[in-house]
Design a protein around this nucleic acid. Structure first.
Length: 237
DNA sequence: GCGACAG
DNA sequence: ATCTTGTCGC
């Protein structure tokens, strides 16, 4: 698929924040995706374990994966990976600058143009309202959303214990996401919109993508593929 | 000022 | 993210 070229890369956290502030106005927060997406892509990145720079520094090797699923059957339609290097140190709120180059490359290697992107992390529920899911949405022009495994910004009350139970996540007086229980009695996930999608729609997709496990099949597949791709790197060159 | 902090 | 042993549960 086609993906817009990356902007000039930030050298400092200040510059990275400026880029987020500059791109944020391009977000379309209306529910503009197809009523019934046919394909949904899951994205994830696996990092190489190493003591020197550590998985949190810059420069360590990594592998990104994009897995396209049939939204109806959840069967894999297409897969793509891309090897790369951590493009930025890990800084809460600037995760996108670490993973974007490799993720964009993986997406470009896809023949399919998915109807929705599901990212491992946050979208609007972000210090500056521009998490990874928003960034990828703007770069691709596709509807996008984030599903995170742990809390980041905002406050919330614990949702009920049953699958489908949810509660709003509020930050600076706004509802920026939703804590959603995807299976009875499991830790909830954190859903937030990225681009061209509404929170209700995003949660509906998150639930439909998780018929059996806590995490959506999209991120489970992408997680496995990225790890496999990384292992392939480590064992060869 | 001090902690917390997606992956 | 990644490092790690055992342990509880289906």
């Amino acid at each position: 698929m086609e993906v817009r070229d990356l902007h000039d890369w930030p050298a400092t956290a200040r510059e990275a924040e400026e880029i987020q502030d500059r791109l944020r106005p391009l977000l379309d927060l209306r529910d503009r995706g197809p009523l019934r997406p046919r394909t949904i892509a899951g994205l994830d990145v696996a990092y190489e374990r190493d003591g020197a720079r550590g998985p949190s520094g810059r420069g360590g090797r990594l592998a990104a994966a994009a897995v396209v699923l049939d939204a109806e059957t959840l069967e894999v339609v297409e897969e793509a990976t891309a090897a790369g290097t951590a493009a930025f140190p890990y800084v809460p709120g600037l995760l996108a600058f670490r993973e974007l180059p490799a993720l964009v490359e993986a997406l470009r290697r896809l023949e399919t143009t998915p109807d929705l992107l599901v990212c491992d992390g946050y979208g609007l529920a972000h210090p500056r309202r521009f998490g990874l899911a928003c960034h990828l949405g703007v770069l691709t022009g596709l509807p996008s959303m984030g599903v995170a495994k742990t809390p980041f910004v905002g406050a919330y009350d614990p949702p009920g214990e049953r699958r489908g139970d949810a509660a709003p996540v509020r930050h600076d007086g706004e509802v920026v996401g939703r804590v959603l229980r995807t299976q009875d009695g499991v830790k909830p996930v954190f859903v937030s919109v990225g681009h061209r999608i509404g929170l209700d729609t995003a949660c509906r997709h998150a639930l439909a993508l998780a018929p059996r496990y806590r995490l959506p099949e999209t991120t489970r597949r992408a997680d496995r593929l990225s790890r496999d791709a990384l292992a392939a790197l480590t064992s060869s060159a």
